[in-house]
Each structure stands twice: as C-alpha cells, then as structure tokens.
Design a protein around this nucleic acid. Sequence first.
DNA 1: CTAAATTCTGGCCATGCGGTCAAAAAATCA
DNA 2: TGATTTTTTGACCGCATGGCCAGAATTTAG
Lengths: 216, 216
Amino acid sequence: MRSKNQPSGRKSDGGQGDRSFIEQARRAQIIAAAIGAIAELGFAGASLARIAERAGISKGVISYHFAGKDELMEQVVERIYTDAAEHTAPLVAEQATVAASVRAHILGAAEYMRGHRDQLIALGEIFNNLRTPDGKPRFGAHSSEPLYQALEALYRAGQASGEFRAFDTRVMAVTHQAAVDTMFGYWTAYPEHDLEAHARQLADLLLNGVRAPGAD
Amino acid sequence: MRSKNQPSGRKSDGGQGDRSFIEQARRAQIIAAAIGAIAELGFAGASLARIAERAGISKGVISYHFAGKDELMEQVVERIYTDAAEHTAPLVAEQATVAASVRAHILGAAEYMRGHRDQLIALGEIFNNLRTPDGKPRFGAHSSEPLYQALEALYRAGQASGEFRAFDTRVMAVTHQAAVDTMFGYWTAYPEHDLEAHARQLADLLLNGVRAPGAD
DNA sequence: CTAAATTCTGGCCATGCGGTCAAAAAATCA
DNA sequence: TGATTTTTTGACCGCATGGCCAGAATTTAG
C-alpha cells in the first residue's frame, strides 16, 4: 500500500526537486495549454476539461500531474512571471544613465509583449480572478511588490544622480507599472495600434515628468 | 392568457420607461446587494443565490425583476458609471486653465473613490469578467472610448492654448486613465495609503510630463 | 521475458450554477 | 367585501464544474 502515485505529492515544494523528464514535459505541455485556454476563453472559461482538450489528453492527467486547479494556475503564473522578468531585467541594467534605463524598461516591455500576447493575457486573468478557498484574491496588489521595489530603486537612483527631481518614488513606480500594463491592454484591444510608438511616447511622458528642472 | 408577468420584459429598453415605484425600489435593492456581493466575493463568487441572500429575498425575485444575470450586471454597470460621471464632469468644467482641469479631474476622482469603494471594485470586476454568450468580453477596452475621448479633448485644449507641449493625446489619455484607476487599486490593497497625497503626486507628474518647455 | 512502477483513460460523483414554475401570499381594485 | 393583479416563495430542472478512482496501457527495472 506504500508508494502511492503522486508525482506532485510533495506539496508546498517550491523547487521542482527530482522530477523526471517526461514528468516535466507533461507539466509544461499542460501549462501551455492552460495559457492558450485562458487567453482565449478567459479565466472562467478555462475549465480543466477544456485545457485537457487543448492539450490532447484526458482530463484525469491534469489531476495526476497537479494537485488541483489552483496549483496549475500558480505554476502558470510562476512560469510566465519568471520568464518575463529574465527578459526585462538585463535590458535595464546595461544602460549608462538612469533615464536610459527607464526608457529601456518601457521599450523592452513593449517588445516583449509582441511575442508573448497570450502569456500576458493569461497572467492578467489569473491575477484578477484566482482566489484562495476563503474567497480572498490569491494574487492581490501586494504580489507586485517586487516589481514596485525594483522600479523605486531605479527612480531613486535617478534622484541620487541628480537626473531626476524630487518626487514620491512609490507613486512613480505604481504609475509607471500601470502605464506599461495598460499599454499592453490597449494594444490587445486595438491590435493595429503602434505599440512601439506608444512606448516611445510613454517614455517621453514619464521622463519629462520626473526630469530635474535644470537638465535639458 | 394575455398580460404575462414580466416587468423587465421590454428587452433592449434603454430608459426605464413606466416602472412602478416599488418595482424601481426592488431593482435598486437588488443592484445594491449585487454590488456588495461582487466587491466582497468577486465576480465569480457573486451568484444569484448569494446576491439574494444579501438582499434578504428569495432567488426567484431576481429572475422576476431582471431578465437574467447578464441584465443585472449591465444595470449595475450603468448605475455606477452614470453616477461617477455625474460627479466628475462638473468638477473639470469649472476650472480656469486646462492644467487646473487635469488636476481637478485627478483630485476629484480620488475624493470620489473614498466614498465609493465597493462600487468601483464591482465595476472593475464586471468589466474584467462579464462576457457575451459567445465568450467575448462584454465590456472590452472599447467601452472606455468615451472616457478616452473626453480626456483627449482636455489635453488637446491644453495644446491649443499653448499650456502643453506636443504629444500624442491618445497615449496621454490612456495613461492618465490607467494611472487614476491604479491609484484606486493601490489604495484598495493598502487602505492606510494616503490617497490624496497620491493624487497630488500624480497630478504633478502628469502635468510636468506635458508642460510646454517655456512655461514655468 | 517477467515484474513492478508509472502514466493514462473514461466514467462517476457531489456540488453549485442560472433559470423555471406552480402555487402561495400580498397588494390593488371595484 | 370579493375579484384581480402583482409579487414572492421554495422546490425543481438541466448542466457544467473540479475532483476521484478502478482498471487498462505503457514504461522502466531486474
């Protein structure tokens, strides 16, 4: 009766530990199918049955590889989130001035959006809809703390270097992130919209907003 | 066999036409209960049963007064939306300069948020989640067009008067709206956050971003 | 090749959903 | 008052959902 079948049995296991290759592949496949389903049908429309159908497997397979729908959704978020962060972070770091970093962050985000439409839609859907069993949002605004802190650090550096004027860096970070997120949402609704031009306009706007009075 | 009981039977009837007082009162009561339920439990958690429970009535009453859940949700949106617009619009109009109007819009929105937390949460939930029978979002980003156009007109006026520099007014309008919306979301997540200070910071940021080079 | 472990299938379950309805209750009318 | 209309109730329907599991299929190990 020992050694039950539960590859995903080790609950609350952050790292993926010792997972066989085919196990990892199946999980990746299911996650990909989930992203597609959520992007097309919305969070509520992405049932396990529909995700399984997209993946070309039986519904039970998902239950076999994931503890439940909630774990699936959390894995989807983790996958997308880390991937996006890995892409954006280095772009910012290699700039000479802080203003250039801010601009690079915005333009880099726009470029990333082009190739990851479904992932970002799915991310938003899950953020907005996934809830804990007691009904509270699973990913509240608090989940954006790391993002906010990174942006705050960036803007504070600009203040320290004298590039930027004095302002509340937290409000700035929140606004910056919101503007970038919405740029994506707007482009999603109006696909013919020029994403890169939007990004340039936005960078101009934000940098003008924080630029130190003397610098020109 | 004529004269069936269907107070809400006149489908696609924009105005409320001839509705008895008690009929209007019941509808208002149900809409209020729906707002509370959505704000607390999210869109998915706000079932007809739970809304009815909150209103202290039987579930069937909702079906009697509304054609279906979708109509209820649309009425909720209409109620909230018109109420908010009525509050914000005059504030903007009575300002001397365009910059003052922009500032008034942001500060006015912040003030409004304080007294209408649940309404605005519910509005967001419905915008993000209500879908037509074929699965498409009922209120896409296109629903914000009137807002965007009003803001564009405002910023264009500033450009015409020479207060503002040249920039893409559409990007500006989208960004402005996003920043205001997110100010609300952030305050919701961090209730101790100083909403009015945030609004002032945001107004400074946006106005600095668009201010004409010479003006100071 | 055989045995054991892993993975997959397809059907089943309880739950909650939106919606419907006959009948009861309440309000209105004559 | 009694007759008629409006409103409410509470039970019920069909359906989709997330989850479960016995057994079959497949892969791996000895």
